[in-house]
Design a protein around this nucleic acid. Structure first.
Length: 855
RNA sequence: GCGAGCGUGGCGAAACUGGUAGACGCAAGGGACUUAAAAUCCCUCGACUUCGGUCAUGCGGGUUCGAUCCCCGCCGCUCGCACCA
C-alpha cells in the first residue's frame, strides 16, 4: 500500500482543475440558484501568511460545499492595491510604487494558488489598474453631480517633515509615525462624501442583518453612527449680547427633562463666542490656549481635569426667567451638537464635577422612586430613572414624558425644536498622496470645481520620491489642463482618494469586471448581494460601513440596485503562534527566533525550547498574532512542502471555532496530516469484491447517514471545527466497521470523500479516482442523508435518582414517557436502588433522560 | 467610565433549544511491531477514593426533578468606544 504523497498529488489535482477551467463562474441560464461568497481582498504586501490562508480556506469551504449543493457559485479574488506601503518602498528603495505593487501581486498570486482555492481567476483585478479606478472616478463624479461629494476646510494631522496629511492611525503619541515630527493641526481644503445623509438608513439597515451579521459588528456600527435624540434650542441673552451669537446661545441636549436643573451654560473653547471673547481678552485667550494644551492623546483627555472660565455673560432660562451664567469649559466638544450645552450638575456626572469645583448650584429635579422632595445628590450625579420634581409643569412626570413635554413647550414658544444628531462625521476622502485613485476634478479659476471630461484620469508614471510631499503636485505637466467647461487654463485636483473608497464597491465590480459602466446592472442583479462575506473584525466599522454607504448612494444614483451589499457576514479569528527568544538586547528587547529554528521537548513535564542552529536554550514567549517583527511567522510554502496544503487547510480550521483565534502548532498540523494519510489508506485499501457482513453493513449505513447530517450541519452553521471533529470520528467509525464491505462500505467512503472535499480537496479528488468514481469530486453532488437512518432505533436513557446518575436503560426511540416510566420502575436494579424510598415524582424526557425524585 | 464578549482537563476545545460534562485533536504515559529508530497500530489519560462512590465547567448565591447553559452579585481576561451633553 502506497503512502499518500501530497507533493505529487496536489499539483496533479490542481492541474486537472486548471485544465477543466473548473472554477470559472457559470454564467448563462443554468437554472440553478446563485451563491456569492467573498473574502475581504488582500493588500498586496508581498506575502501570503497563514492568517490570509485561514480566511480564504473558510471561504473556499463555503464555496465548494455550496457548489456541491447545487448552487452556481461566484468566488472571485482581487487586490486592494493602492496605499502607503508602496510609496514607502519607493522612498526607501527607489522602486516605482506601481512596479513594487504589481510584482507583489504576482508573487502573492502564486502563493495563493498553492492553496488550491476554488477561485475564478478570470475575474481578478487590482484597484490600482486604471481599468478599475477609472470606473470609480465615473461614479465619484456621478455622486458629485448629485451633491454627495463636496469640499470644505477641515482640520487634519499635518506632518511638517514629510509634508503630508496623516491618518489618525499614523499619529503615535502626537508624532508622525515615520518622521517622528510633532504633528500639527492644519486646516486644509478637503473632499468629503456625505455619508451623514445616510446615517438613519445605515442604522435602520442593520436591523435587516440580524442573525446574518455578528451582533457585535452591528452594535459597533450603531455606536459609531451614534444617533441621539434630543432638543436643539436657543437661550436668549440676558444683558450683553455677543456679536458672535446675536440671536442667542444655541445648545443641544438629550435631557430636556432636566431643564429646571440648569445652573450654568458651557461653551467649547472653539465655540465662536469663546473665540470672539479670546480675541478681545488676553485672559480668555490664555484660558483657551490652556484648554488646547496636551489634548492630543486619548489618555490625556481621560486624565484631564475639568477646567472652566466664567465669561461674565448671562442667558435667561426659558421657563423660569432666571439668569444663568455662561462659562467656557474644556470638556465640551466643539464638533458635537452645537458646541454648547446647558449644565445640569445634579443629573450629569461631568456637569457635577464641574459645578462642584466652581461652586455652582446643584439642583436635583429627578428623584428616584420612593425619594422625598428633600432628595439631594451627594457624591455623584443621579442619572437613573425617577420622576420629575421642582419643575413646575413637569412635576410628577417620568423622564420620557417630561422630555416630550419640555420639547413641546420649547417648540410652541419658537425657541427650538426636537432634533436628532449623530456622532458620525462626513467621510474625508482626500489624501495628499501619489499612489491612489486621482480625484477626477479640474479646478478652473472661472468655473470652479468641474468634473474631468476624460476618464480615466490616470496617474502619471514619471514621478520621483526624492523630495517629501505629493509628487502629483510638483509634476511639471500633469496637473495643467484646460477647463472642460470654458477651455481656459485650469489645474487638476492633485489629491487622491482614500483607499477605503477603492474597497467600498469592488464586490459589485466582480459581478462583471469588464463592464463598460462601473457596475453591470444585469450581472449585479444576478449576483448581489454577497451571500457570505468573510473577513477580519478589524473592518467592523470603517470598510463595512463605507461599503454599505456607497451601495446606498450608488443605488440612489441608479448605478446599482442593492442597498445592503453583504447579506451575510462572518468575522474570522487570527492565526497566532507562540514566540521564542534568545535573551534580550542591551535595551531589554527580546532577540526573537523563528519557529523553524526551534525544537520543543517535554522534559519532566515542562516544555523546553532549544535553538536548532546554535543549541542554545530559548525562552518561550507569549502566543501572539503572527508578525515579522516577532518572527513567529509560518509561511504557507513551508507547510505545503512539509505536509501538503490539505493538512494545512484542515488544521487552520480544526483546532478552534472559526470566529476565534487559532494557535498554530507543529503537532496540530502533523495530526491533520495523519488524518489525510488515514483517509487515503482507508480508500486505497478498499476491496469492492468483499461483500461484508450484513450486520456491519447495516450499522455502517446508519453511521454514514449520521455523519453526513452532522458534517453538513457543521459546515452550514460555520462550526468548521466541530464538522472536522465529526469527520475524524466518522473515519474512526469506518475503520471500526472492519467487517463491513460491498456497497455499504463504498457508500461510506464516497460520503467521507465528498464531506472532506471542501476542506481537503486534493486528497478527496485522489480518493475519488481511486474509488473508481467517474469525473471529478468537484462535480459530485453533496451527499444526502435520510433522517430516519441518521438516528438510531434504540436510545440509551440515563436514569437519575434525585438528580444523580444511577444507571441507564436501552429503549426503543420515540417510546412514550408513560411506557418508559413503567419499564424503569419495574427494573430490578432501579428497584434495588429505591429500597426504602418512596418515589415522589418521575420526570421522563422523551429520548433523553429519566429522573426519579424519591425520599 | 460606557458597551460587548469570554472564563470547562497539562493544552486547543466539544456539549446546537436546561437533560449522561470533557466529543475530536495536541501533549504525556504504557504496550505491540522492529536488531534499532522512524512510521504505524493498541491501551491509559479531570481530581480524590475506604473502589460503594464523592467532588468537578472562575467565585458566591438563586430558580429547577435536573444548570456549562437561565437569573442576581462578585473576580479575572479580551475587544470596541471613550468628556458625544
Amino acid at each position: 500500500m502506497a503512502r499518500y504523497e501530497p507533493k505529487t498529488a496536489e499539483p496533479r489535482q490542481q492541474a486537472r482543475w486548471a485544465a477543466a477551467d473548473a472554477f470559472r463562474t457559470p454564467t448563462e441560464g443554468t437554472g440553478r440558484p446563485k451563491y456569492y461568497v467573498l473574502e475581504m481582498f488582500p493588500y498586496p504586501s508581498g506575502n501570503i501568511h497563514m492568517g490570509h490562508a485561514r480566511n480564504y480556506v473558510m471561504g473556499d469551504v463555503v464555496a465548494r460545499s455550496r457548489r456541491a449543493q447545487g448552487f452556481d457559485v461566484l468566488h472571485p479574488m482581487g487586490w486592494d492595491a493602492f496605499g502607503l506601503p508602496a510609496e514607502n518602498a519607493a522612498i526607501e528603495r527607489g522602486i516605482h510604487p506601481g512596479d513594487w505593487t504589481w510584482s507583489n501581486i504576482a508573487a502573492m498570486r502564486d502563493q495563493l494558488k498553492l492553496l488550491g482555492l476554488s477561485l475564478d481567476w478570470s475575474r481578478e483585478f487590482a484597484t490600482c489598474d486604471p481599468a478599475y479606478y477609472g470606473k470609480q472616478q465615473a461614479w465619484f463624479l456621478e455622486l458629485f453631480r448629485r451633491g454627495l461629494v463636496y469640499r470644505k476646510d477641515s482640520v487634519v494631522n499635518w506632518d511638517p517633515v514629510d509634508n503630508t496629511v496623516l491618518a489618525n492611525e499614523q499619529v503615535v503619541d502626537g508624532r508622525g509615525w515615520r518622521s517622528g515630527a510633532v504633528v500639527e493641526k492644519r486646516k486644509l481644503n478637503q473632499w468629503f462624501l456625505r455619508i451623514t445623509d445616510y446615517a438613519d438608513e445605515l442604522i435602520e439597515g442593520l436591523k435587516e442583518l440580524e442573525g446574518r451579521w455578528p451582533d457585535k459588528v452591528r452594535l459597533m456600527q450603531e455606536n459609531w453612527i451614534g444617533r441621539s435624540k434630543g432638543l436643539q434650542m436657543t437661550w436668549a441673552w440676558a444683558g450683553a449680547t455677543p456679536a458672535a451669537a446675536p440671536d442667542g446661545l444655541e445648545i443641544y441636549t438629550t435631557r430636556p427633562d432636566t431643564l429646571f436643573g440648569a445652573s450654568f451654560m458651557g461653551l467649547a473653547p472653539d465655540h465662536p463666542v469663546s473665540k470672539a471673547l479670546a480675541e478681545a481678552s488676553p485672559e480668555v485667550a490664555a484660558f483657551v490656549a490652556e484648554c488646547r494644551k496636551g489634548g492630543a492623546s486619548q489618555a490625556d483627555i481621560e486624565q484631564a481635569e475639568k477646567i472652566g472660565f466664567d465669561t461674565g455673560l448671562k442667558v435667561r432660562h426659558p421657563f423660569t426667567g432666571a439668569e444663568v451664567p455662561v462659562w467656557i469649559a474644556n470638556f465640551i466638544l466643539s464638533e458635537y451638537g452645537t458646541g454648547a450645552i446647558f449644565g445640569c450638575p445634579a443629573h450629569d456626572q461631568r456637569d457635577f464635577e464641574f459645578a462642584s469645583k466652581y461652586g455652582l448650584p446643584i439642583l436635583p429635579v429627578v428623584k428616584p422612586e420612593g425619594a422625598g422632595d428633600d432628595f439631594a445628590v451627594q457624591d455623584e450625579a443621579y442619572t437613573g430613572p425617577g420622576s420629575i420634581f421642582r419643575s413646575d409643569f413637569l412635576d410628577g412626570l417620568d423622564i420620557e414624558a417630561a422630555k416630550a413635554e419640555a420639547i413641546r413647550r420649547i417648540e410652541a414658544a419658537g425657541q427650538g425644536r426636537g432634533a436628532t444628531i449623530y456622532r458620525l462625521r462626513d467621510w474625508g476622502v482626500s489624501r495628499q498622496r501619489y499612489w491612489g485613485c486621482p480625484i477626477p476634478i479640474i479646478h478652473c479659476p472661472a468655473c470652479g470645481a468641474v468634473p474631468a471630461d476624460q476618464l480615466p484620469v490616470e496617474l502619471p508614471k514619471d514621478v520621483t520620491f526624492d523630495v517629501p510631499g505629493n509628487p502629483l503636485d510638483r509634476h511639471p505637466t500633469w496637473k495643467h489642463v484646460k477647463c472642460p467647461s470654458c477651455h481656459g487654463d485650469a489645474t487638476r485636483e492633485t489629491d487622491t482618494l482614500d483607499t477605503f473608497v477603492d474597497s467600498s464597491w469592488y464586490f459589485a465590480r466582480f459581478a462583471d469586471p469588464t463592464a463598460a459602466e462601473p457596475i453591470s446592472q444585469a450581472a449585479a442583479d444576478k449576483w448581489l448581494p454577497v451571500d457570505q462575506y468573510i473577513g477580519g473584525v478589524e473592518h467592523a466599522v470603517l470598510h463595512l460601513l463605507y461599503a454599505r454607504f456607497v451601495s446606498r448612494a450608488l443605488s440612489d444614483a441608479g448605478l446599482m440596485s442593492v442597498k445592503e451589499p453583504f447579506a451575510g457576514l462572518f468575522t474570522q479569528g487570527m492565526v497566532v503562534h507562540e514566540t521564542y527568544f534568545d535573551g534580550t538586547d542591551e535595551v531589554g528587547r527580546p532577540n526573537w527566533v523563528e519557529p523553524a529554528d526551534v525544537r520543543i521537548e517535554t522534559i519532566d513535564g515542562r516544555r523546553v525550547a532549544t535553538r536548532l542552529s546554535t543549541g542554545a536554550p530559548l525562552s518561550i514567549g507569549d502566543v501572539e498574532k503572527m508578525s515579522k517583527s516577532k518572527k513567529n511567522v509560518v509561511a504557507p510554502q513551508e507547510i505545503v512542502d512539509a505536509y501538503g496544503v490539505d493538512a494545512g487547510r484542515l488544521f487552520v480550521l480544526s483546532d478552534s471555532p472559526p470566529e476565534r483565534d487559532v494557535q498554530w502548532t507543529t503537532g496540530g498540523v502533523e495530526g491533520a496530516s495523519r488524518f489525510v494519510q488515514r483517509v487515503w489508506a482507508e480508500v486505497d485499501g478498499f476491496d469492492p469484491s468483499v461483500p461484508g457482513d450484513d450486520q456491519a453493513n447495516a450499522s455502517l449505513v446508519r453511521e454514514t447517514h449520521k455523519a453526513v447530517k452532522a458534517v453538513s450541519e457543521g459546515i452550514d452553521g460555520f462550526r468548521f471545527n466541530s464538522a472536522i471533529a465529526k469527520l475524524y470520528a466518522f473515519l474512526a467509525t469506518i475503520r471500526e466497521h472492519a467487517a463491513a464491505g460491498g456497497a455499504a462500505k463504498r457508500e461510506a467512503l464516497s460520503a467521507l470523500l465528498r464531506l472532506i472535499a471542501p476542506f481537503t480537496p486534493h486528497v478527496a479528488e485522489e480518493g475519488w479516482t481511486r474509488l473508481g468514481e467517474g469525473g471529478m469530486i468537484l462535480d459530485a453532488p453533496w451527499p444526502a442523508y435520510d433522517p430516519a437512518l441518521a438516528a438510531d432505533d434504540e436510545v440509551v436513557l440515563p436514569i437519575q435518582i434525585n438528580g444523580k446518575r444511577r444507571g441507564e436503560i436501552r429503549v426503543a426511540r420515540g417510546l412514550e414517557p408513560a411506557e418508559v416510566e413503567a419499564i424503569v420502575l419495574a427494573d430490578p436494579e432501579v428497584r434495588g436502588r429505591l429500597e426504602g424510598l418512596t418515589v415522589r415524582k418521575v420526570v421522563v424526557v422523551k429520548d433523553r433522560i429519566v429522573n426519579l425524585v424519591a425520599n
